[in-house]
Structures are given as C-alpha cells and as structure tokens.
Simulated assay, not measured.
Amino acid sequence: MQTYYEAINWNNIEDVIDKSTWEKLTEQFWLDTRIPLSNDLDDWRKLSSQEKDLVGKVFGGLTLLDTMQSETGIEALRRDIRTPHEEAVYNNIQFMESVHAKSYSSIFSTLNTKAEIEAIFDWTNTNPHLQKKAQIINEIYENGTALEKKVASVFLETFLFYSGFFTPLYYLGNNKLANVAEIIKLIIRDESVHGTYIGYKFQLGFKELAEEEQENLKNWMYDLLYTLYENEEAYTRSLYDTVGWTEEVLVFLRYNANKALMNLGHDPLFPDTADDVNPIIMNGISTGTSNHDFFSQVGNGYLLGEVEAMEDDDYLYGL
C-alpha cells in the first residue's frame, strides 16, 4: 500500500541540532503558576506611580509580541521546515510562546486592579509604535520568503523583546520584584534557544543561495533592522524618558540587535558591546535561579547570545 501519511521517527535524525534543541527545550519546561508572584507585593507598593505605569506598559507590549509569535509567527515558520523533527521543535516553541503571553497576565492579576489591567491592554492594543512593529513583523510572516520569515523571527526574539526585558532586569539588579524577574529570566532562557535555533536554520538556507541572492537578502536584512531600530528607539523614548533610563535601554537594544545578527551568521551593526551595557542589567541576566528548587536541575542563568548546555555551540553564530 502507498504511504498516505508518514510517521515521525526520532531514531532517524537528519539534523542533530533538532534533537539537541528539543531536549533542551523540554528539559527547561516551566509554568508561571510555580512562581510565588505575591511575594513581590511589598516591593510593588513602594514603587512610584510612574514606575508602576512603566512596568504595566512594558509587560503589555511583551504580551502583544508573544501573542503574535504564538499565533502567526511559528505557524509561518512551520510552512518551510527542512525536517519533520524541526516541526516538532516549532510545536514546542509555539506552546511556550503561549505560556510566556499568559505569564504576563499572571503578573498583572497579582500586581494590578481590574481597571488597571484593562487600561494596560487598551494602551497595548492602540500604541502606534507597538502596532507598527507588530505590523512590520507580521507582514513578513504573511508575505515573506522562508528566509525572510526567519530573519523577522530572530529580530523579534533576540532584539525587539529587550526594550521590555530591561525593566524587570533593572529591578532585579536592585533587589526588587525578584519573582517577577524570575519569570522574565525563564522567558529569556527560552527566547535564547528559540533565537539561536531559528538563526541556525536561517544559516543553512542562506548558504544554499547564489552569491547575488545572498547579497540582496543581506541588504534587505540590514535595512529591516534599521527600520525596526528607528521605531524601537521612538517606543523606548515614549516609555523610559519619564524615569530617565532611555539611553541605557538603547544601549541594551543595540547590543541585542548585534546578537540577533550574530545568530543569523552575520556581522554586528552597532559598536555597543557587553561592556557598554549597565552592569546591573548584565548581572540580572547572568544570576542563576535562587528561589525555586523546581528549576535547579536545569538552571536559568543566561548570558546573551549563548545557550547553556547546548553541545553544538559553534552553530550559534556561524557554520
């Protein structure tokens, strides 16, 4: 009988990175319900009204981006798989993006009133800078080539999220909102794997292009990054000017934009390095889990652009 539907065989691996990424993602599985967010209420009450407003808005923005990634982003990538095991990895990534989006609502329900939550989502769903970056990325998901969609995904996960991640990492570095930051660190840990894996898949396809096609795609990629950065700078100023953190956030953004390019196998664009980033932020990223034994077997320490315990390290930035 002719085969109608083919079963996935995990004993016949075409690309070892599919298997190692699947194992990494399943090892570090987590849920927001295991984090005692209510323990941060004392810290929350001590924040100024401007700081509370900032926290609500950055998490609202992150919720929007994770929602888009879970609903349309991974679905777009799934159309261009190279192996059946790659699709299984995308299934895992899609689920965890939904976990990320839900986690922000857990934070809201702990820290904010119903009216405040409604105001946060009203702002999120109408903010011009948020909507513009969602439109730019989503249009690529809908109409771009297989490689363009991977570029958009890596830029989203390794660059655009970080204007929002700065706030909880800053508070963590100042011994505030430790449990809120714990969730963000777990999300960062996931996104680091997502970005490096999808970047690796991009590199495979990029190497198969003719030289002229490579050059055209490379120019498109850098033009896209400029466009996204211009919008992200405006978004950052609208959020952070009130608390005086804008310039530090922009450095952090440029540093992560470089990491996104490196995940795609290309040279950094900006001069900013880890040494230029506020050390409080870098310390917040690299600090291991201290609160929850549930996670101790896998750890959630994260250095930007690296994935701990991924054995095939050389695939992250170049093949």
Rank of each mutant, 00 (worst) to 15 (best):
E71V: 12
K149L: 08
M68K: 03
T242Y: 10
L169T: 00
I280Q: 11
A115L: 12
T167A: 10
D122M: 07
D42Q: 15
N258L: 04
G60W: 03
S290I: 13
A260V: 05
D18K: 09
I93W: 12
E191P: 05
H194Y: 06
T67V: 10
F295V: 10
V307T: 07
R237C: 08
R254Y: 04
A181R: 04
V58Q: 05
G144F: 00
V55T: 09
N175H: 10
M1I: 14
N291C: 12
N143G: 01
P271V: 05
G195E: 02
E118C: 06
G56L: 07
R189Q: 13
L186A: 09
D267K: 15
Y222R: 12
L25M: 08
Y240D: 09
L64F: 01
K102E: 14
T72H: 11
H129T: 13
F166S: 01
L264H: 04
H100I: 06
L130P: 05
N138V: 08
A260F: 06
N125W: 13
S98Q: 10
Q135P: 03
T167W: 01
V151P: 00
P36R: 00
S163W: 13
Y171P: 04
A257G: 05
T227G: 14
A178D: 14
G199V: 04
G56F: 00
N263I: 04
N125E: 11
F108S: 03
Y104S: 08
S38F: 12
L186K: 10
I137F: 13
T21R: 00
V307G: 04
M310S: 11
K150Q: 09
N91L: 06
F108L: 10
E71C: 01
N263A: 14
D190F: 01
L228A: 05
P36H: 02
F95K: 10
N12Q: 15
L304Y: 15
Y171M: 02
G205M: 02
E247K: 13
S109H: 15
I280E: 13
E139V: 01
I136W: 06
P279M: 07
I183P: 03
N258W: 07
L269R: 13
G299N: 03
A134M: 14
V55N: 03
E75R: 12
E23L: 14
S153N: 12
V298D: 11
T246V: 07
N112T: 11
H85T: 02
Y255H: 00
K132S: 09
Q2Y: 15
L62Q: 12
I8V: 15
V55G: 10
D223Y: 08
W123L: 00
D241C: 08
F161Q: 11
E308G: 15
V58E: 01
N256M: 13
Y5K: 14
Y104I: 07
T246Y: 02
E233A: 07
T83Q: 05
G244S: 07
P168Q: 02
S49Q: 14
Y197F: 13
M221H: 07
Y317D: 10
N11E: 06
F166Q: 00
N174M: 01
Y171T: 10
L204D: 03
I117N: 04
M262E: 15
N258M: 02
D190R: 06
G60P: 01
G301K: 14
I35D: 09
Y162R: 06
K259E: 15
T273V: 02
K149F: 02
T113V: 01
P268E: 03
